[in-house]
Design a protein around this nucleic acid. Structure first.
Lengths: 250, 250
DNA sequence: CGCGACATTGATAATTATCAAACTTGGTGG
DNA sequence: CCACCAAGTTTGATAATTATCAATGTCGCG
């Protein structure tokens, strides 16, 4: 029975920041234990989302930000016509919804890519608590600032990189995010479709597929469906960064 | 002498948020008059920057954010090799440097495109003040959130729009920013070069030039050097939004 | 007035989208 | 448990868009 006991305890604990394995990556990162209780008190747990289920819809009134606990999501913005843009993927510990603060509604729908659990953090209460807890405030500023930096990197990818470089960057970035979360950086499962990847990277699905095939024949990665194995990380990194060949000065 | 007097007063006043014509767009936007004094007290005025002069350089230690008072700037990130990416233009009332909070250094250089004045706001003092003034804190969150939304729009532009749509979007966005600041939305001067525009929009200089010429022969805009006149705003807007022609369903 | 940076225009080439078709896979119901 | 269907993926052929290379033109400033 100790097994059952500890499992039961683990499940209870899962609903408290203090014992969440993600707390060192998540919003309460910088909080002292005694402050974490206050933070924990404003969190609302949510029933798990099923694959394809929306966490929130574009245009919904902004009320909360969400921390991903397990699973993954995509953010999609629809512009009138059927022309969607996938602007982000979210992995555990990442914050969803920060781009809704300004206009008080969410600028895109956020949809689970697999079974996914999140913590809901009502923003008005978070804001009030951030008044009392400088570390929490700082972490919130840092989270938004990091998202800004990531966006700039994405702009660079979209405006200056070739299709090969985009795919290679996508894989190295994902790999790194998994590594930081304690998973293998070499072997992981893509929760998103090729179409999602193409939409995100500004490429046609066919191009994504072709380039993954090519990477495979080059023995840089092994891809089987959504399973990815990075066989030659240095090669992949150099593919991602490869300069747009410039002529060496005479 | 009343002329001289008022001019002198104006110049003095220019250095106080309370009388700055931008205060309704800028960070102290939401502050009550009595709070604005506190905010004003942490601001550092700076000598005007000359064209081409950097406000800050990529990698500099993050200490402050800056509000543009007059003029304009560009943000450029260099990635090792000579491959620069222009990620932003800044106009009066806009905040520079928010993307440096997270890593405590600025991720790109910010360079004046013309004679430019800014207000320096030391971030540690801003953070402390934001503890006391919820409106200031809210405005800071909103500024960052807006920048996130703008970035997503830019990603959409870079990944889904044609060169024509990019140029048209660029012009309508600029036009709107001028309008909000009380300038003519129809007639304005570009402070950036064609090369800057191309870099920002992910296009070759030649493409920028060609498309501007074409817009001109279509009588949508009149361009002479860096002077822009928008002749047919509805046409320009529809060029910017034009759907990637989809077949009407049977 | 002339120099250098910036801008325009033309011709060609490269990259990636689009169209088309076959092939897998995962999930569902018989 | 298998068959089947729809969604997702791969591969090939062609077309379109935009970059690149090259040359000329023009503007601003000393």
């Amino acid at each position: 029975m100790p097994d059952t006991m500890s499992r039961r305890r683990a499940m209870l604990h899962e609903t408290r920041c203090q014992t969440c394995s993600l707390s060192s990556l998540c919003l309460p990162l910088a909080l002292a234990v005694e402050d974490m209780g206050q933070f924990d008190a404003i969190i609302r747990r949510r029933a798990p989302l099923k694959k394809g289920e929306p966490l929130l819809r574009q245009g919904d009134a902004f009320t909360s930000v969400f921390a991903v606990r397990s699973g993954s999501l995509k953010q999609v913005t629809t512009e009138g016509n059927g022309n969607d843009q996938l602007t982000n993927f979210f992995l555990p510990s990442e914050l969803v919804g920060l781009d809704g603060i300004d206009e008080q509604h969410y600028p895109g729908s956020v949809i689970a890519l697999e079974t996914t659990t999140v913590c809901e953090i009502p923003f008005d209460r978070l804001d009030l608590l951030s008044e009392e807890l400088p570390e929490l405030r700082g972490q919130l500023y840092r989270s938004m600032s990091k998202e800004l930096r990531d966006d700039r990197r994405m702009m660079r990818l979209l405006s200056r990189k070739t299709a090969d470089q985009r795919l290679a960057s996508f894989l190295t970035t994902l790999s790194d995010r998994f590594r930081r979360r304690g998973y293998s950086p070499y072997s992981f499962r893509l929760s998103m479709s090729r179409a999602d990847i193409g939409n995100y990277l500004g490429l046609a699905v066919e191009t994504v597929s072709r380039i993954l095939s090519r990477f495979q024949t080059q023995h840089v990665v092994a891809v089987s469906g959504r399973e990815v194995n990075i066989l030659d990380m240095p090669a992949l990194i150099s593919l991602a960064e490869e300069e747009q060949q410039e002529i060496s000065p005479g």
